[in-house]
């Protein structure tokens, strides 16, 4: 018996507002996930790709004064980005193309390394969020407090959003800040004020539907490994199906003198099978958010699909939880 044991004492104090209770669900989830060493390592690794766009912005801003950097910018814009017109403009009038170059670099960061990191991270975190609670019947504890299923879902989703925000939104905003710090004067903020808003918009596009799908899988089973499998299968099968159906008739793409294949000359309909692949659907909407959508098809089918996935995903999670409570 501890020496400080005073038996039961009544407690009187002010309680926190009920609207803040989902925050405790999120905080507990974040703290649980944070304990895993592999996750901390992964978060650190997920920040590494920022070096490439950061160097791009650095090179662009210094190209006005450093001829060597100018050469690098021309090579990058003409090569990987396939925008020789932009490369010429970057030499003649950098201020005019600053907004486009920055958004292009940030979109590339969003589109390729971070989208892949997101798939991996969500696949490792989200499946256990609800399925563990179903297996250990923890929902009885959560809902013995004044917490609604919607608030519970919000709290759990916030765990995923927190970690995705750490690897996607914060690095992208940091890129923007780096750009501002490297630019000649603060008037650049006036030219690029919309970029942080576009970053936040693209983050929402990336975070919300993916969380809905991952939580939907998680709530469908008490075995998190099945949910993980379903999550990765969705991305891999979608990606492979899109690539196969879009490029199956292309035998030998003509090659440029330098760089990769010249897809534009092949008259490929990139949008026809896009909705099959979550990766490409998200990419289309993100490009649209950044104002850099390179394909001709309308973005609205992709937006509608993501909206439907989000609503249906969260609805299924809610339904599954309510169904469990009734047992």
């Amino acid at each position: 018996m501890p020496v400080h044991d005073l038996g039961y004492r009544n407690w009187e104090g002010s309680r926190t507002a009920r609207i803040l209770r989902p925050m405790f669900v999120a905080r507990s989830g974040v703290s649980l996930v944070w304990r895993r060493r592999w996750l901390r390592t992964m978060l650190m690794l997920a920040w590494l790709p920022i070096i490439v766009p950061a160097f791009g912005i650095f090179a662009f801003e210094y190209s006005a004064t450093e001829p060597e950097m100018r050469q690098v910018v021309v090579q990058v814009l003409s090569g990987p980005f396939q925008r020789p017109d932009l490369a010429q403009q970057a030499i003649s009038d950098p201020a005019e193309v600053r907004h486009e170059v920055w958004t292009m670099l940030i979109l590339t960061f969003f589109r390729y390394p971070q989208l892949s990191a997101m798939v991996l991270l969500v696949g490792l975190i989200a499946p256990m969020l609800v399925s563990y609670d179903l297996r250990s019947k923890a929902y009885l504890l959560y809902f013995s407090r004044p917490l609604s299923p919607t608030e519970y879902i919000l709290g759990k989703a916030a765990v995923v959003w927190f970690f995705l925000g750490m690897i996607v939104t914060i690095p992208a905003l940091l890129l923007y800040v780096i750009g501002i710090l490297l630019s000649p004067d603060l008037s650049v903020i006036g030219e690029t004020w919309d970029i942080p808003l576009r970053i936040l918009g693209a983050s929402v596009v990336l975070l919300v539907p993916t969380t809905a799908v991952a939580m939907c899988y998680s709530s469908s089973t008490s075995e998190s490994r099945y949910a993980s499998f379903a999550w990765f299968a969705t991305w891999i099968l979608g990606f492979v199906a899109y690539q196969f159906l879009t490029f199956m008739n292309v035998r030998r793409p003509p090659r440029r003198r330098r760089g990769g294949p010249d897809w534009q000359d092949l008259d490929i309909d990139f949008d026809r099978y896009r909705l099959l692949s979550p990766y490409h659907t998200l990419g289309k909407v993100e490009s649209w958010v950044f104002g850099l959508d390179p394909t001709e098809g309308s973005v609205w089918p992709a937006i509608c699909l993501l909206l439907i996935i989000t609503v249906v995903g969260f609805w299924i999670v809610r339904r599954r939880i309510i169904a469990r409570l009734s047992v």
């Binding site: 407690w11 104090g13 309680r15 926190t16 507002a17 009920r18 209770r21 405790f24 669900v25 905080r27 507990s28 649980l32 304990r35 563990y132 609670d133 297996r135 250990s136 019947k137 923890a138 929902y139 009885l140 504890l141 959560y142 013995s144 407090r145 917490l147």
Partner: peptide, 28 residues
Amino acid sequence: YLPEDDCYIAGLNGIESVAFMAHLAGLP
């Protein structure tokens, strides 16, 4: 409410479980 079922929040230790329920009930 003490549920009949064997239920717990996986991953937490005892004191964290109790503190978590306190926080969910609004204790700072």
